[in-house]
């Protein structure tokens, strides 16, 4: 499967032969090559444990590869110094499944932490940030529709609201890249749609490059321009979203079906027949 969407210019993000083995022996990424040009809306799909989150964490240096090179905006993240890393991270918004908000702090304070990369020295509490940044944080909360909660503690919000605050915090960074690792996995369907819509809207408005990991294929197909599938740390699918059918995408998940039945796994031709006959039987 070939990368179908590389543009002529230098890609914004590139992974070359990236492998990651954790200290416990798990091979989380296995020789991954991936180029992502500016402005792409990419969705990473795959089972949990397929390496999606690990790949995302390599892009902003939360993890370093065992071998291979990760390049983001011209910086080799895989070997960057702390200082360089901070420079790269400033330009990458990262939205997590578990939101990563400080529950006891107000929404405004949480959003303000997104500005730390622009400031020197530690800050504590709203008043320790410049007035102009506070005003900016208000704007971002307005944008995600939570300005009324600005002075409310983050742990009093619903999951969907928390994720919107987390998005506001990322916007505070004025990032060029937005990474979202299972941003809606802990949310109910309605909040999921709201959060994904918001993410897409701000990404288009700010012309950001977006990578979202999702395990629901329908959601991924709905808005991404490119779908990349991971299985066991390897890229097994890389397609333009418009030409991809849901069944093709589902192939990324097929390993589980096969592994349930060792016989079928050995004879891939027979798999369809056996399964269908089983379904019809009763």
């Amino acid at each position: 499967m070939q990368d179908s969407s590389t543009s002529g210019a230098d890609p914004l993000i590139s992974l070359t032969g990236v492998s990651k083995r954790f200290p416990n022996g798990t091979l989380a990424l296995d020789n991954v090559d991936l180029n992502i040009p500016r402005g792409q809306l990419l969705s990473l799909i795959g089972l949990s444990g397929s390496g999606k989150s690990t790949l995302m964490r390599h892009l902003n240096g939360l993890h370093r590869p065992t071998s291979g090179v990760v390049k983001v905006m011209g910086v080799e993240v895989s070997s960057a110094s702390n200082r360089q890393l901070r420079g790269v991270r400033k330009n990458i918004g990262f939205v997590f499944q578990q939101f990563g908000l400080v529950g006891r702090a107000t929404c405004l304070e949480n959003v303000l932490t997104g500005a730390l990369g622009r400031l020197n020295g530690p800050r504590y509490g709203v008043w320790s940030y410049p007035k102009q940044l506070r005003s900016e944080a208000f704007d971002h909360l307005e944008r995600v529709g939570l300005v009324n909660q600005a002075y409310q503690r983050a742990d009093t919000l619903s999951g969907g609201q928390m994720q919107r605050v987390a998005i506001a915090r990322s916007l505070m960074q004025q990032p060029q890249i937005m990474l979202a690792d299972e941003p809606v996995a802990s949310l109910d369907p309605e909040s999921s749609a709201q959060v994904l819509d918001l993410l897409l809207k701000v990404a288009v408005e700010e012309q950001m490059t977006v990578i979202v990991t999702l395990h629901q294929v329908e959601l991924a197909l709905g808005w991404a321009t490119r779908i990349v599938g991971l299985r066991d740390g390897r890229v097994v699918l890389d397609r333009d979203a418009t030409t991809l059918k849901q069944e093709d995408a589902m192939e990324v998940y097929q390993r589980v079906d096969k592994s349930l039945d060792p016989d079928v796994a050995r004879r891939p031709d027979a798999s369809g027949v056996t399964q269908r006959s089983v379904q019809v039987a009763p």
Binding site: N60, L62, R86, G87, V88, R89, K90, N91, I92, G93, F94, F96, Q98, F99, G100, L101, V102, G103, R104, A105, E109, T113, G114, L116, G117, L119, G121, P122, R123, Y124, A166, R169, S170, M172, Q173
Partner: peptide, 28 residues
């Protein structure tokens, strides 16, 4: 919790900035 720390570190904050912004409010 580790999640807020990882999230704030990801915004490009330094080690001490992150500790002050995420650990201190949790332990106070």
């Amino acid at each position: 919790e580790f999640a807020p720390r990882e999230a704030v570190l990801s915004t490009g904050a330094g080690k001490w900035q992150t500790i002050l912004a995420t650990i201190i409010p949790q332990i106070i």
